[in-house]
Design a protein around this nucleic acid. Structure first.
Lengths: 246, 246
DNA sequence: ATAGTGTAGATTGTTGACAGTCTGGATGTA
DNA sequence: TACATCCAGACTGTCAACAATCTACACTAT
């Protein structure tokens, strides 16, 4: 009955080229196709997407407003680079949010929600014993997102996801070690246990500790970052790549 | 020696028209010159700023990325309207962040920082006894921003300010009553006292309670909002103001 | 009157062109 | 060799024009 997919025309009736471009560029950034600090060549992007520079510029501006991109007049826009200090700040905020969410859940989580969290912990245990770091990584993301979602605060969920993206701009996604996974999931267990016990203070404590330790595991597993002489937001006078890379 | 102000040319060398437009439009929104739900007429804005539509569109897209504006294809962009539910979520996050900041400060606030906070509380007390609601409002903003700044998390400070702006889009800025001011400042006093005492748990509790109560005072002082049938992000088919207002 | 249709004007979405700025290397000079 | 100057190409910043869409209002038929 339906067209295989919405015809190109129908898509345009609902979404502007700029929004599509924004989506695609964001994808390129989060997948690492565009690396932190890399320059966004408007012309190249427009050519690649088969559109003109206007919508591309709009898309980039949108990403700038969202904090994924930094622009320097007459020099261009760059994928934002997150400094160690900024990453630390992001983690601190996550500590506060996660702790709060856990305390909240300890007060009013439903049986189904607790069951869902337990299931995730079990799956992570499986991934951990199997040494499946990638699987664990994904499940872990899911666990924390679920925690936020169950806490019933959509905005907090959004912020949490946003921070996850930004942390990817700090250093490329890094997987935790086997020992890290074990420790991490033990903390997950404690979080769920405290929530199930209906003990807000303990749940908060467990949530906060888990994120704090997560920061430790994060930096421990990341390769040392190069000095980084590229726009964190201030820098100038940086080399401009000529040949439109892609 | 200096030009009265940077010559227009020098400004352009450092800031693009789009960024200037964004700044100006944001100002219009936060001052209420553009009200929540109101439509942003690109042509009118461009004319008012004496530029073309390109930079205006970019500016609007940036504000959209920042969450101040919502866009519907072929219908235009609108100043975002914050629902009661969203406002509630914002307050919840503020509770978490403020509580965390207070606990943090209780652990490592310097004498100077504590003195600064005490000074602000004193000033608020003066404003309160004088019945100066506007002065109190401003000082209160300052107090909370200072709390965040002293906690040493720039990002948290930014989020806090951002939320303040968004809450203005919920209902127009509303001032608390005389009784509200008194209660509010009593809580401020308790926060500073707990911080000065170096008691993180108590400081957090005081910070959290203060924001929670703040939500109560906020809704109590706000006029009831109209049903609101304008774009919160989904709506369609809404009347379009014709005559370019301004 | 009411509902349906059509049209003009207002506005948004996109494009292509032009001007200004910056980078990197070539050229020339001490 | 070291250093200042100049030049061409690559890009970004802005604009003006065109196409597409939507809204409001008038007009028609029932």
């Amino acid at each position: 009955m339906n067209e295989p997919s919405l015809s190109a025309l129908d898509i345009l009736r609902t979404r502007s080229l700029a929004s599509l471009a924004a989506q695609e560029i964001e994808r390129m950034i989060t997948t690492g196709e565009l690396k932190a600090g890399e320059r966004l060549n408007e012309l190249a992007l427009a050519a690649r997407l088969g559109i003109s520079r206007g919508p591309v510029r709009e898309a980039v501006r949108g990403l700038e407003g969202a904090g994924l991109v930094v622009t320097v007049v007459n020099q261009g826009s760059f994928v934002r680079k997150v400094s160690a200090e900024e990453a630390h700040e992001l983690y601190e905020i996550r500590v506060a949010l996660t702790g709060y969410a856990c305390a909240h859940l300890a007060r009013q989580a439903t049986k189904e929600q607790i069951a869902a969290l337990r299931a995730l912990v079990r799956q992570m245990a499986t991934a951990q014993t199997a040494g499946d770091a990638v699987g664990y990584y994904t499940l872990n993301l899911d666990f924390h997102a679920t925690l936020m979602r169950f806490a019933g605060n959509k905005r907090a969920l959004r912020i949490h996801e946003e921070f996850g993206n930004e942390l990817n701009l700090f250093r490329r996604r890094s997987l935790v070690s086997a020992a890290g996974m074990r420790a991490s999931n033990a903390e997950h267990t404690e979080i769920v246990r405290a929530i199930a016990a209906g003990d807000p203070a303990r749940a908060r404590e467990a949530g906060e500790l888990h994120i704090s330790h997560g920061l430790g595991r994060f930096v421990a597993s990341s390769p040392p970052a190069e000095p980084a002489a590229v726009p964190d937001g201030e820098t100038r006078k940086l080399p401009r790549r000529r040949k439109a890379a892609l």
